[in-house]
Amino acid sequence: MQIFVKTLTGKTITLEVEPSDTIENVKAKIQDKEGIPPDQQRLIFAGKQLEDGRTLSDYNIQKESTSHLVLR
């Protein structure tokens, strides 16, 4: 499924993911596309910070959901 990640600069990154993917996996995909190390990434969805060990389905992130990327 596709999800979108919006950066603070207003850029939207499109990612191909599975509901069973962990947040860690998603951060690795963002690193592949954008070159941002996962330890600098914070992903926010529905006002919550997403934890590495959880999956997209844990957070009820469905296709075409948009989460926000904040850099630390």
Rank of each mutant, 00 (worst) to 15 (best):
T22D: 03
D32K: 13
T9W: 15
K33S: 11
D58S: 12
A46L: 13
T9C: 15
D39K: 11
L56C: 01
I23D: 00
L8G: 11
T14Q: 09
K33C: 09
Q31K: 10
F45R: 03
L8E: 14
R54V: 05
E34F: 09
S57F: 09
S65F: 10
K29S: 03
S20D: 11
K29A: 06
S65D: 09
M1I: 11
E16F: 13
G47Q: 04
S20P: 02
G35C: 06
H68M: 13
Q41G: 03
V5T: 01
L71G: 06
Q31N: 09
T55Y: 05
P37T: 06
E64F: 14
F45Q: 03
D58G: 03
L43H: 01
L56G: 00
V17G: 02
N60H: 09
Q49E: 15
T22Y: 07
T9G: 12
G10I: 02
K27H: 02
V70M: 11
T7F: 15
G35S: 05
T14S: 09
T22N: 04
Q41W: 06
E18M: 14
D32F: 11
D21S: 08
T9Q: 11
T9E: 10
Q2M: 13
E64L: 12
R42Y: 12
F4L: 09
K63V: 09
Q62V: 12
Q31S: 12
R72G: 10
E34R: 05
N25L: 13
T22E: 02
Y59M: 03
N25V: 14
E51P: 03
L50D: 01
Q62M: 12
N60Q: 08
P37D: 06
T9N: 13
K33Q: 12
M1F: 15
F45P: 00
E16A: 09
I13E: 01
E64H: 13
T9A: 12
E16M: 13
D58P: 00
K27T: 01
I3A: 01
T12F: 11
Q41I: 11
G10V: 02
P38T: 14
F45W: 09
D32W: 09
D21A: 07
L50M: 12
V17A: 05
T7A: 05
P38E: 06
I30C: 01
D21E: 09
I23N: 00
L50K: 00
I23K: 00
E34W: 15
P38S: 13
H68A: 08
L69N: 02
Y59N: 02
G10Q: 04
V5K: 00
D52A: 07
P37W: 05
